[in-house]
């Protein structure tokens, strides 16, 4: 089908975009890789679209020792190829590699997928797992909102109508830590049936100190689960990751849909947790040795 008629503006400054958004009750168009399907299927029919693609300076990836800040017009593909970003927070490259297909990664934006708040998107989970935040601009000014206050429900965030998310900030991987990301999808690049991102942090004497996990396509909003108690104090190379996987299965609350049953998703949570934790712990060990 075709989109219902709407009016269109493509302002060249953020200020003008915010003005039109607040006057018109309009919707932001970023990469369009989620919004245009919704328009064509007539699941959404906004009266006005404000295309932010012609606003300069929103396409920067800023990397410091503490965090990676991704501007609203950074495409998935640009983040995927950004070596500096991956060095500070390796989950960014690892998760983005699982987002859609090349032609969609060329247009779709990382910030757009967070603003879209789809619980089957990879980057919403990564924002949560890294304890990240977004910067939200309105005509009243700009503020930083932590992920817990941002995600409200599936496809629903706390930002007011007429706001533009100008950036997402992902804090750096802590010292003596490693990450891994894996998912099961029907085809490479499809939305995950279930995905898992994990961070393992070791103590000075290379024992497991902290284990965090976040899942994709499991639950209504991204969540972070602390799995430390299952393996706390174990030497990194001998930890019982299956026990952490078993704990994860008891913590999640997946849904049944046409792609998979809740039980199958719960099973995948266990399997993916066990696999990713072993990889993340190995990486944490290697990083600790270098640090």
């Amino acid at each position: 089908m075709k989109p219902a008629p709407f009016r269109y503006a493509d302002p060249s400054t953020l200020g003008e975009a915010l003005a039109v958004l607040s006057d018109e009750g309009a919707k932001v168009l970023a990469g369009g890789q989620s919004l245009l399907p919704l328009l064509s299927m007539r699941l959404a029919a906004p009266a006005t679209l404000v295309d932010i693609n012609r606003i300069p300076d929103l396409d920067a990836v800023e990397v410091t020792d503490d965090a990676v800040t991704v501007g609203a017009l950074v495409r998935h593909d640009a983040l995927l190829r950004h070596g500096g970003a991956a060095a500070v927070q390796p989950l960014l490259g690892r998760a983005t590699a699982n987002v859609a297909h090349p032609a969609i990664r060329n247009r779709g934006t990382t910030v757009g997928s967070i603003a879209h708040a789809d619980p089957s998107g990879e980057m919403t989970s990564v924002l949560a797992l890294t304890d990240g935040s977004v910067t939200v601009a309105t005509t009243a000014g700009s503020e930083v909102v932590g992920w817990r206050d941002f995600f409200v429900g599936p496809l629903e965030t706390s930002i007011p109508a007429g706001a533009v998310v100008t950036a997402a900030t992902f804090p750096a991987l802590p010292p003596r830590s490693g990450t891994a990301f894996a998912e099961v999808a029907r085809r490479k690049g499809d939305y995950a049936v279930c995905g898992a991102g994990v961070v393992v942090t070791l103590s000075e004497d290379r024992r497991v100190e902290r284990v965090l996990a976040s899942y994709v396509s499991v639950g209504l909003t991204p969540e972070v689960h602390d799995l430390t108690e299952a393996v706390a104090g174990s030497p990194a190379e001998k930890a019982d990751w299956a026990a952490a996987g078993a704990l994860a299965r008891t913590l999640v609350d997946p849904d049944t849909d046409i792609h998979a049953s809740a039980d199958y998703r719960r099973l995948l949570v266990g399997v993916l947790t066990e696999r990713t934790l072993a990889d993340a712990a190995a990486e944490a060990g290697a990083r600790a040795a270098r640090e």
Partner: peptide, 27 residues
């Protein structure tokens, strides 16, 4: 499909492959 799934409509815009059903002509 007209919603980004099949790839039949892929064209190259400014050097990058994109789904032409997921862009507006005005863009």
């Amino acid at each position: 499909c007209e919603h980004g799934v099949c790839g039949a409509c892929t064209v190259v815009v400014d050097g990058a492959a994109v789904r032409s059903c997921l862009m507006l002509a005005v863009q």
